[in-house]
């Protein structure tokens, strides 16, 4: 396993070794740059982050090339390009707010690829922030153009006011389970503070990802009774959870892992 820096050449996408043509596919932490060699442009896989190279055989003379950052264990999902949530990812979320139509949540982690981002904390919101950056952050608050130096790629309405910096999601009532969708009451499925296993069904709009728990393996995996004030609860069937004291509350439970 060798170290690479961004821009460093790893391998061309086709290579002849021992009389056989080997194909290399660009995976996590890499991209393909066209590099000029003897007046000919050759597509070469290069690193995009600082880390170590991992080359894995995936098929008949086909290899996937990826770069894993230091201090990070090897992950299963070598194909995905970054840690941001995308469609069909299984994620763990925390419910933040519920109403009759939907449950709002924040995405904590993605199964198979770890935490999304480290919270960068008070950097742009606290006292340490640069004076000229508006409350809420840099490129995000473009309400006042004189405060922002450059805005070549920024959207006018790209804004963030919340101090928390997690990616947000919504579980709509019709996405909670796959049967009797019309009879779902959100307050009988989730409570604020619950940790829920869900699947991403779309990137959604600018503010929220859309999530679904319509599967036996998806739903509440950790919850405390009495609105978070009580004890941890354990699932007894697919829509009830019980505390050690015998309090029973309704939830859309995930099938416990074997």
């Amino acid at each position: 396993m060798s170290k690479v820096i961004p821009g460093q050449y790893i391998t061309p996408i086709h290579k002849v070794e021992d009389g056989e043509v080997k194909r290399y596919i660009s995976g996590k932490g890499t991209t393909i740059n066209e590099i000029e060699v003897e007046n000919e442009k050759i597509p070469i896989i290069v690193g995009t982050i600082l880390g170590r190279v991992i080359i894995k055989l995936t098929g008949d003379n086909e290899y996937i090339v990826s770069v894993i950052p230091k201090n990070q264990p090897e992950v299963e999902d070598l194909k995905s390009t970054n840690n941001l949530p995308k469609e069909n990812d299984i994620v763990l979320v925390r419910i933040t707010r519920i109403n009759q139509r939907q449950a709002n949540c924040e995405i904590l982690t993605i199964e198979g690829s770890g935490n999304i981002i480290n919270d960068s904390g008070i950097g742009t919101n606290g006292e340490l922030a640069h004076l000229s950056i508006g409350y809420g952050g840099g490129s995000q608050s473009l309400s006042n153009h004189s405060t922002i130096a450059s805005s070549q790629t920024s959207m006018i309405n790209a804004m963030s006011i919340d101090v928390g910096e997690n990616f947000k999601g919504i579980i709509r009532s019709q996405d909670v389970r796959s049967t009797e969708r019309d009879k779902i009451k959100i307050q009988e499925c989730f409570k604020p503070g619950d940790i829920v296993r869900a699947i991403i069904i779309s990137l959604g709009d600018g503010s929220n990802y859309y999530l679904s728990t319509a599967n036996n393996e998806l739903g509440v995996i950790y919850s405390k009774s009495d609105g978070g004030a009580g004890n941890p609860m354990f699932p007894i069937d697919w829509q009830h959870m019980i505390t050690e004291n015998g309090n029973i509350e309704m939830r859309k439970c995930a099938k416990p892992l074997q």
């Binding site: 941001l84 981002i117 960068s120 950097g123 742009t124 640069h130 004076l131 000229s132 950056i133 952050g137 840099g138 490129s139 995000q140 922002i148 130096a149 450059s150 805005s151 070549q152 790629t153 920024s154 959207m155 309405n157 790209a158 804004m159 963030s160 006011i161 919340d162 910096e165 997690n166 990616f167 947000k168 990137l203 959604g204 709009d205 600018g206 503010s207």
Partner: peptide, 24 residues
């Protein structure tokens, strides 16, 4: 130089990152 991001935005959907640079 300090880099903050990728951080989520709010508002309308954008399919790629938006970058801002501020020098003081």
């Amino acid at each position: 130089v300090s880099v903050f991001g990728p951080r989520p935005i709010r508002g309308s959907f954008i399919d790629q990152a938006s970058v801002s640079v501020e020098c003081k």
